[in-house]
Design a protein around this nucleic acid. Structure first.
Lengths: 217, 217
DNA sequence: GGAAAACGGAGGAGATCTCTCCAGTTTCGT
DNA sequence: ACGAAACTGGAGAGATCTCCTCCGTTTTCC
């Protein structure tokens, strides 16, 4: 069903072999270079011509959709697992850690999660599943008195967006440097007597969505 | 001395008028669009031809240097003012607030501060003055027991880098939304009994420099 | 063995950006 | 008020990039 010819006769042997090579090469190239990588780069890595890539996949978004549907699904799985934890605060922290960890290893995934224009239906749908889960993770941690009460779930989203910046900057230097910044961020989310009230209202969902849509330097 | 012809005869009246128009237009355009703005855009805003811009300024970096030398100098001034505050923690917080505030209003300044490739000697020199000041602001706050003891000054730098991401994303939506994220970040820097030790060593200065040099999506 | 399917990769088309060139216009000293 | 020198505008050259198509050649499979 991932194949465009699924309903017709199967691909010729060489075609099927190349299709797999392209998918694997695309996985590698997008993970390294992000979704900005050209299909020429994918073709080169796969050892086929660009024409072969374009014959098999209508365009880059279609390829991204096939590749990343599953990976974004993993994020949903992580959220569900963390919702199942007894300790709500630990669940929230663990979610952040594992979600960021997953993205740390894949620049394409980072781009896609924080870049609503790209990808198609499946990726988009998966991303939308995240919102209620994150909101629930936060609400539980707040009810337990562990997370500061004035957080909104968009604050969690912005926190991961900011962490992605740290990852992008440091991935080539020290691949786990992000853990330090995550720890700092988590301490900022914790309920604490010293912390004053947050200034201003949080972003609402639409504002946050627009924020993701905004191109960053 | 800002003028390339300073040692020769003064510019003709129309040339000097256009030079001023270009500088003002460049300030506006770079503040809005960042240092990626084209000199064509600057010329259009100034109401002159591109040729006129290139006749007066050898290239974009020279123009950036003239424009932003002073603005980065303001950052140094802010750091000095905050170093003079009695309350070391308040000084650090105030520095972050004012430094980020200054950058919030000027996308070009954000780009330049966090993008060591661009700009020339003067901008570069001004940026280097920041490092010891930030280190001192942090050390004082740590000695006072207010900032967590395991922070390095590169953590402050990374914090502002991450905040810049938040600003870039939200500037067009709610221009002061960043204050909320700054408050969260500051709470993460505060010494606190709940906070465990930070994982891994901080970035050293060279690593942080390389991190800034790394292109971000 | 031959028709059909697939291949490769040069290159067209379209975006950008930076910066140059020169025919025409403006300034200013005398 | 006039002519030389200074200055102007903006088309467009040149350099990159990226996406995607086209078609002569090769491979598959009945």
């Amino acid at each position: 069903m991932a194949s465009p010819e699924a309903t017709d006769r199967p691909l010729r042997r060489d075609a099927e072999r190349n299709r797999q090579r392209i998918l694997e090469a695309a996985r590698e190239v997008f993970a390294e270079q992000g979704i900005g990588a050209t299909l020429d780069a994918v073709a080169a890595r796969a050892g086929v011509g660009v024409g072969t890539v374009y014959r098999r996949f209508p365009d880059k978004d279609a390829l991204l959709d096939i590749l990343f549907d599953e990976r974004i699904g993993e994020l949903v799985g992580i959220a569900d697992a963390c919702l199942a934890e007894d300790d709500a605060w630990a669940g929230l922290c663990r979610f952040l850690e594992r979600a960021v960890e997953l993205q740390a290893g894949d620049r394409g995934l980072r781009d896609l999660v924080h870049h609503p224009e790209r990808g198609r239906e499946r990726v988009r749908a998966a991303r939308e599943q995240m919102v209620p889960r994150i909101a629930e993770l936060l609400r539980r941690a707040q009810d337990a008195g562990a997370a500061r009460a004035d957080l909104a779930h968009t604050d969690i989203g912005m926190t991961t967006l900011m962490l992605v910046t740290a990852i992008d900057s440091t991935a080539g230097i020290r691949s786990d440097a992000w853990r330090r910044f995550l720890a700092l961020a988590i301490d900022g989310l914790r309920a604490s007597p010293e912390a004053g009230a947050l200034p201003g209202p949080p972003l609402d969902v639409d504002e946050f969505d627009e924020a993701l849509r905004t191109p960053r330097s």
